[in-house]
């Protein structure tokens, strides 16, 4: 098993054998997976997808603020809570760089993306980060579906990681991305879904969304693994 290194065991039932379908062994054991708290089947903020605290309001306080600050329509869906287990997962996957771990959530993410029927755009990572890490963690999660790389990070050298800043600093971040022009015809008039790994303040994904709107996108929504 990928997460806890426990030995893998899959019971092969008669039903499975006679279904004549490819056997897909699970990538993580039920015990580890149960540590992640899914947000799909519970009440969440309509805008950012976080678990609702105040059940009488369908929009969280942060998103009320965003409504005043952000000129375009934007909603995000998150698959899991950003809890201790998910933080640990991100640490192993992104920062330690265990690329195998993409398999834990890959099927879930790609299924969601296919279901949306939208054009898929991934949030880019800085070339230096890519060089160091050797992979783009978002593309890893989306492996198996067609994505459009129409965004790239600006040429300025990166001083601090987004994950190393506090909330106030993150909200003030200037547009970190630029639009790759040749992709303009691909985007114009399209419904688009942006994919990122974690939605924390929503700054990053909104920066990406505003660029897509400026390029003529019809509607932009977000999908993140965690919120």
């Amino acid at each position: 098993m990928l997460l806890c290194q426990a030995p893998l065991s899959t019971a092969l039932t008669l039903e499975k054998i006679f279904s004549f379908q490819k056997v897909r062994p699970p990538r993580a054991c039920a015990k580890c997976l149960s540590q992640f708290k899914p947000l799909l089947d519970c009440q969440t903020c309509r805008v950012c997808g976080r678990r609702a605290v105040d059940l009488s309001d369908d929009t969280c306080l942060d998103c009320h603020k965003w409504r005043q600050q952000f000129p375009y329509p934007f909603v995000n869906q998150a698959l899991f809570e950003y809890n201790a287990a998910m933080k640990d997962f991100m640490k192993q996957y992104k920062f330690l760089g265990d690329y195998r771990l993409r398999a834990v959530f890959n099927q879930l993410v790609t299924a969601r993306l296919k279901q949306s029927g939208r054009l898929i755009v991934t949030v880019p990572i800085h070339p230096n980060t890519f060089e160091e890490r050797g992979f783009n963690q978002v593309l890893g999660l989306c492996e198996g579906v067609q994505t459009v790389s129409c965004l790239k990070t600006c040429q300025i050298t990166k001083h601090t990681r987004q994950s190393e800043k506090d909330r106030a600093a993150r909200l003030q971040t200037a547009q970190p991305f630029e639009f790759v022009e040749p992709a303009g015809s691909l985007i114009r008039g399209k419904a688009i879904i942006i994919v990122d790994d974690v939605y924390t303040t929503g700054t990053t994904i909104r920066h990406a969304a505003s660029l897509l709107y400026q390029a003529g996108a019809n509607s932009v929504t977000g999908l993140t693994l965690a919120r």
Partner: peptide
């Protein structure tokens, strides 16, 4: 295998 034909040790 990582993208771009790189490898890492798991």
């Amino acid at each position: 295998q990582l993208p771009d034909n790189q490898y890492y040790c798991y």
